[in-house]
Amino acid sequence: MMVQSRNLRYRVWMARIFMILFLCLIIFPFLMIISVSFRSGNFATGDLIPSNPSLEHWYLAFGIPWENADGSFTQPPFPVLLWLWNSIKVAFISTVLILLLSTTGAYAFARLRFRFKESMLTAMMILQMFPAVLALVAIYSLFDQIGGYVPWLGLDSLGSVTVAYLGGLALHIWLIKGYFETIDQSLEEAAAIDGATPWQAFRFVLLPLSTPILAVVFILAFISSIAEYPVASVLLQSMDNLTLAVGSRQYLNPQNYLWGDFAAAAVLSGLPISLIFLLCQRWIVGGLTSGGVKG
């Protein structure tokens, strides 16, 4: 018994050391980027803790011109806050629309009976494996055409990106449907006996019981819209219309390499999104595993 417990203690220490080394490796990029954001200049290399810290990059990230030592001013290279705002607008509106369409759709698939239901579900399951990346030429062309009639949905408009993100519906319908199926149907049946229409049963009985999954879908859809790159990079062109995901790339252009400015902008814009994720991670994790296992 003695031998075994010493063996165990030895193992625990090994595991702990391994874990800490691994975490150092994982955290390294984040520590580095924070350090870089406080260095002066875009090319200086230095230690983990900058020797002469400067707020230069942070001023520029917030859109405030920075006064150099020689009295000249450096103008902010890119409108980061505007990009962040664009991203939030697009993500918020598209997420609300996705939530609206996918809850009603999931309700029908979970509770109502109609023809072709099973085949529609299988089709959705297969379709969600085809990401929008594969059909960018068609999406580009589609919005080019639509723009001829509705300018705010045409190319280089935030409207087009918002609408294009609705393609991510199929996955969320499956997630919500899985959750609806875990809720006992008898409550709605009781409501129906009392004369509630299916809409009323859905709106006043089922929906209030499903807030957890709605929150999960909201967060998942919101974060995936904010982080979406391919569609936005094809549809958006002018500097003021870019989303953060498309715009950030401009910092590391080989012809105009702004490593320090990028660092500050990355921390500034990455922090709120990461915080939202970490605060909600328990729900997200639950949603991912349950949705995942159910398919």
Partner: peptide
């Protein structure tokens, strides 16, 4: 068509932004 009311908007979204682009791409 009552029961389809709930799925119609979602199906429309899926057809316009997933199915149509796929078919159009094959066409191109």
């Amino acid at each position: 068509g009552y029961n389809y009311r709930y799925v119609f908007p979602a199906l429309l979204g899926v057809s316009i932004f997933i199915v149509f682009p796929l078919i159009y791409t094959v066409n191109v």
